[in-house]
Design a protein around this nucleic acid. Structure first.
Lengths: 262, 262, 262, 262
DNA sequence: AATGAATGAGATTTCATTCAT
DNA sequence: AATGAATGAAATCTCATTCAT
């Protein structure tokens, strides 16, 4: 099932990639694409082709020759850019996460309140993964398990992506809008886990409406922000209770006092 | 890529069916297994072997010959009981769900309160899937997508399993312990989605403690039962309202008092 | 039972196509075979190997691995050139027909009379198929029935081959050597059907002689050209009848004459 | 591809069959089927089932289990009656030939002239094989080649069948209706070969008409009976013979006359 | 005599990966 | 740097035949 390389592959790739963007300013401008640009665009084409196949057919059914055809390169060329099918899939995931992070950050920046930010993030995530569910299989399976996932590009990009959510949540806590209850990783898992499960349900429904998405998003945000979520004033339930009790007691004493006096 | 069965399979399959011959009591008891018993035990052995391979190596890397070897039968025999690899995987899933449903129901029955029931279900699910994460891949991928998933055995067993959760939730709502907010399917997705995502995090942690599991369970149940869950003293919203009314009334009287005095 | 190709095959296949690159003359001649030449020769080798196996062991008993071994290539390579076993068998048939047509045309061109042409064709066909009877099974069975036979290469080549016979017959009719009786397809079926059946008989005879072949050929041609074929004296039955009647009448007159005289 | 038995099979079959019909008269009549009758009917059922599968799906695609199912017996039972798939197929062929021979003989007996007999035989053969073309594949391939064909039941039955044709032809020759030209086996091959080839053409035609069948039959018979078939004036061979005798007699008298004169 | 579960050799086909050009 | 033909291990699935019951 797996045919791992028998000998180390002589590829210059990483170096190439890292060298990119280096002293771009010093290069003399030219209309014809430079070698570096050509290489980059070819890599992009391969990733785009792989992305398309992966999302439409899934990992197992996607073949390297199919990707090569779509990308307009020879099969052998794929191995010049990526050491194997798994690495290529990981690159696709990395790009996916990069884009996702980008749009998430941009969208969040436009939101005023924590609530709005969370709502945006939830909807954004849900809508994004609905079209790329096959990509998520990758995360849960082979690509993630086979080789060192931690330390890989995908892992890093994933951290960066969820960090957007973490920042929003921490901001909410700091400003007292969200109770500092559970550990952040737990909230994170609840957030993304719920959304991915909902995606499956949505996909199974014959016709999933915008309303369904909205309902999921609303409920999730409500839960994460504390049931109090609808309150305008940010006083906690417990504080309120205490306060009421104090006032109640005070009123009682006043009443007794006045009753005596009168 | 896959070839689905062309003809009906000569298999004895389900226990229910085998029990049919009814007057088992009249047969003279014998220590040697009957033909039917052997068939059943063989099917069990195959499923057990498949389960083991599937959970340890995943669907793609599991081969039929590996399963046959583990089960102690010839490769061809597998196809006597299951029309293809997919069907076998589905049978494994069905057994998994059946067992899961059984233990879930039993456990829930022993719990007194809705809270306890939910906590039990959450912990039970989390602990169960930690060892069988590869099995869950199946649900999310091939087995689910390839053929008519809806209407399949797995689908039915899955419905039965989640129904346990649904019943608990509905019971809680009915008894006023849980707010009847979002649609049931949303709560369900939040519950199971959160747990499965948490499972992944737990598995990635070098050493996931019992405390982590407990924390996830607690937080999830808190959210589903409404934030009120954490209060020490059980003052209900209704109590609070009453108190506010009292304070309001007291304030009114104070106002009158002061009006008299002044 | 059979799985037909799902995707286009990366094959160089036909000679015509390869000749396309046109300025072959400008290329500097080299002794080492070019890539294209190697591809073509490999295809030829595969077809030759398949031909050998097919004719000696028949379709069912011929295995792809056997062909690969004979051709000196890996099994997978076969599928680079032919999408499956059926397609390979059809290619073998196509080559067979091509060669057959070639030699038939050449031979016919050398013959003077229609009779000679038919005799040549009959003998040529009979001798050709005696060594390749297993190939003919293909035509009558799987290869022909499984997929769209009509429109296939084999079909076209077969049409081309039988056209040689058709032309000869039509020529004979046009020149008045053959009576324009039955439909052409009927004559064609009689011609080829008789020969193939005779082949079987010949093969069953412990020692089939040249004389047997000659006898079959002679008889068949005689029939197709009209019974006149065997007459030494070219007098028809009708002529004979007339002659007899004339003699009869003459004898009668003589008798009367002599009776008077005497 | 072939899995021939590894050891001789302990079957009583032949003996059983031959013993049949033995002293039938001595058996006491009974309404319930005897053991022998049951065995015979089971064999018949198997052959009938095999015949159906063989004619509709061909040899390769017909499976023993399919036959067993259709015949209403267990797979193992097939091997009690026939040593392997090939033998079963041969039995089917034998039955086919037996029936064919029977109907051929009956039909021929009802015809007055040689011409009519041939026409009947041709049409009968053509119509019979059109529905059973898959059976004919057997004759041309495996069944015939694999084991000792000569000496087998099929071979004998085939001889018996073609003997019907042979008899008709020999009768025609003896009565002077057919020229005694070619060897009988040649005429036989022409007859059956032409018809089987025509069958293929007929099957390929989108809609083969009765007229097509009639045309083939007419042409074939015309050829076999000699071109005489087309004569306009009906002077029979017998007339011709008489005339010759008269001429001969006349010549004799003339000789005598001249002897007197001289 | 009958059964039918079990066998296991063997067939076709796929495709990630290599490497000579 | 690019190609793409070649590889060959490995996977799934079939089915004639056997044999314990």
């Amino acid at each position: 099932m797996k045919r791992e390389p028998k000998r180390a592959m002589p590829r210059a790739k990483s170096a190439e990639k890292n060298a990119r963007s280096a002293k771009a300013g010093t290069r003399k401008p030219s209309l014809a694409p430079t070698r570096r640009e050509r290489v980059q665009s070819k890599e992009d084409a391969i990733i785009a082709a792989a992305h398309k196949s992966l999302t439409t057919r899934g990992f197992a059914k996607t073949t390297m020759s199919e990707i090569a055809r779509k990308a307009g390169v020879a099969e052998g060329t794929l191995y010049l850019y990526f050491s194997n099918k798994n690495a290529l899939a990981r690159a696709v995931l990395a790009v996916f996460y990069k884009r996702l992070t980008q749009t998430a950050k941009t969208g969040v920046a436009k939101c005023a309140t924590t609530r709005e930010k969370l709502e945006f993030l939830a909807r954004h995530h849900l809508e994004s993964i609905i079209g790329e569910r096959r990509l998520l299989e990758l995360i849960a399976s082979d690509v993630r398990n086979t080789d060192a996932y931690e330390g890989s590009d995908v892992y890093k990009m994933n951290r960066e992506y969820v960090a957007v959510f973490d920042d929003v949540m921490r901001g909410g806590v700091w400003r007292g809008e969200i109770e500092d209850g559970a550990a952040q990783w737990i909230k994170r898992d609840i957030f993304f886990g719920s959304l991915e499960y909902s995606m499956r349900t949505l996909l199974m429904k014959k016709r999933s409406s915008k309303k369904d998405v909205a309902a999921v998003v609303a409920e999730l945000v409500k839960l994460l922000m504390g049931g109090a979520g609808v309150r305008t004033e940010p006083m906690s339930n417990r504080d309120l209770t205490k306060a009421v009790e104090r006032v109640d007691a005070a009123a009682l004493r006043l009443e007794r006092l006045s009753a005596v006096k009168m």
